[in-house]
Design a protein around this nucleic acid. Sequence first.
DNA 1: CATTCCCGCCACCGG
DNA 2: CCGGTGGCGGGAATG
Length: 823
Amino acid sequence: RNVLETPLKQAATSQSVLTEIQPLTTPPKPKETPPADPWTPTSNLKMLISAASPEIRSRDQRRELSNNTRDEHLSGDEYEKSHPSRKEKSLGLLCHKFLARYPDYPSTAENNYICLDEVAEELNVERRRIYDIVNVLESLHMVSRLAKNRYAWHGRHNLSKTLQALKKVGEENKYTQQIQMIKRREHEHEFDFDGERNEDMARSFGSIEHSEMSFVELPGMEFRAASVNSRKDKSLRVMSQKFVMLFLVSSPQIVSLEVAAKILIGEDQLEDLDKSKFKTKIRRLYDIANVLSSLELIKKVHVTEERGRKPAFKWTGPAVLPNTQDTKLEMTSTTCPSPIADSIASKEQCSKNLFPSRGKQNFTRHPSLIKLVKSIENDRRKIQSAPTSPVKISATGTDPNFSAFPSQMATVPAIAEQQLEGQPKKAQELKMKWSGSALELSLSEAAPKPEAPRNVAPSQQPSLGLCPPSHSAVPPLILPHPHSGVSYAIYLHPSQAHAVTTYNPSFVLQPLPCANVTGAKSLNSKALTTITTEEGDSHIATDEPSKSLTAKERATVKSETLSQRCLKRPQALQENNSIKRFRSDEENLDTSLTFFPSGYLIPLTQCTHGNKAGVSNKEKAGICSVQHTTYSSPIAGVIPVTASELKAVNIPAFHITPFNIMLSPTSIAAAPVLSSSCLSSSNTGSAHNPSPSVLNFTLQHVGLIPAGVQVPANPALRHAPLSSQPENVNLQEEKIFLTSCGNLKPEFTLFFPFSIKSSHFLSSLQPPVPKEPQEPQPLTENFFRTPGGPNTGSSLSANSDGTERISQGTLYIPQRKLEVSED
DNA sequence: CATTCCCGCCACCGG
DNA sequence: CCGGTGGCGGGAATG
């Protein structure tokens, strides 16, 4: 069929098109392509430029010249056709145009409706292409379908939430391990896989890990018309989500197409490396990647492994912070116990459902996990009682607005602004964004030495019968494996802050936990303590490193455990009873998420329509809906709710977490900025930097850091090699930042983002994993290939090359085997 | 030749 | 039953 036709058509098209034939139905002449396009801010321009290869650009210029001066009067289609350049028709470009039409952060009030027909027409493309774009946007919840030809534009408001959710789901799915496995396999390829140990692992992964997953819904919009969110969502959307998950889960946030494709395929059917299928998958991934690139969430790079150079993409989007919200909730929870709590649980459940795993039996609870949970709960209590607990603060403000914030908090923004000063444009942008977003500084401390993963005796763990609601708190603790460390976040803005935090693994600095700091912190420390048995005082810097890592891991694990538990519960999701139960159980907990009958997760942030619609009927719905209402996005304003609801509302709104200042998302640069500032001396002239004093001030203010402690501006930064190359920049920054951290205190250790330990630990904790000492950590594996490595034991030594080794106070410069190169 | 990915056929599905 | 959706894969551009 196609075979025959295609050739003809194409032949025809290619030629005729060139000439000028275009059976466009489009009456109005589009000619938006030209410079006249209203690109969104600077970013778009940049993107465009970067996107377009030099050749194209030159071509464009030529075109302009030839065509006519940039006269407005279009000479018509003539030149239009003249751009046969394939690139000009690229999805990425098209996506840019598309995005240019809508604001990143549309106000709720606006009528952000998208009519596909219109758009297609205006952009002068076939509808089909629009679908491609919209579908991936949908996967990020940047748009939602309202009806037939209509979509609602949400922009980046929920983006952070979506990412968080995706990350979580990704973690639950053990994507990290899957990636690992694939890489390993490929590495040892024909070597055969029947290897003893590997085999086991492979098996387990293969059968168990892959699960089918359906679209991950977030808050806000799904339900509406049942019709709208008809299930059966197949690929693109889901594929896009999975793809994103891979980034969020892997530590160097780089994912190669090949791996992604394999994983995406693998899920359904255990691999049968169907070649054509693989090819198709790749094609689709390119489609998705193009859109994501337009969103500036990823960028294309190449990774050079021993096998050669492969196409890959690097995450450039906002770092997905652990779970700020949860953290916040945790803190707040004290004051307001509420239904919110379930949200997390429900969330997990949802995700679980999404990823049905075949073997329930597979889920094992790791004792340590259990312990963790418990400890957390305890912490919570303590926190509650604690005088200084943040809770109070949040409690204080009844008003969801952040105006209510305590004075100290208020200062933060100001500081931030100051910091921003030196930068020309960005600074401004940031400022603008400020209002809406929180500035995030995440500090984490690294652990110098790898420690044995678990010190804790298994026996100790008591098992909890319930799904620990508390876990709501957990999420925050969970840092992506690579970065250990607790981060505290201060939300300047209400939850929805689209704020994309820049929590970048690489930049994470962890302050040692101070005893009295806020809940989140305390949680961590406690958790650690408990788990680790050994150190009660987390506060002391020394042990921190190991602890923190552990903590993270544990947290992670724990979350898994929880979710698993949830699964265990009989059809909890679907049943009212179960729901009720949840409620009661979790009453004390607060989470930002609410359980939704539909099985979708609904983020607080966006529930705008939610309240009207769904609520009324069923009790489940009622419950959910209520919560929804409660959460209604801050932007929209507060929606009146019942008292109980109110509580809930407040919580989310305030989210004041101990310490995390989030920079506006857009400014991915944010993190970098900070870091650069640190080394400003050597660095280019970007100017200013957040002086350490400011930082200290802030930290102290917040209470994260003991008054005495100071974060020095670090001279050490200078050490960092400067490279003019773009790619290197990131690394440098990372290093630098790290260094500075190290200076912070003797206790502080530099922490390399890709540290093995964490992952290592993680893996060790994982239930499903067989007895073997372990496989090499995920990260490690990617970047550092260790020949014999896998079995080395828990020590960092895993990196045979020593790359991973970290010593206190030392600048740690990773040597990557893999090289990432810009396109 | 390899990578990237546009184009559009056509199955499907929701109204 | 029809028109909107969107899976899917050929094969053209590009590298």
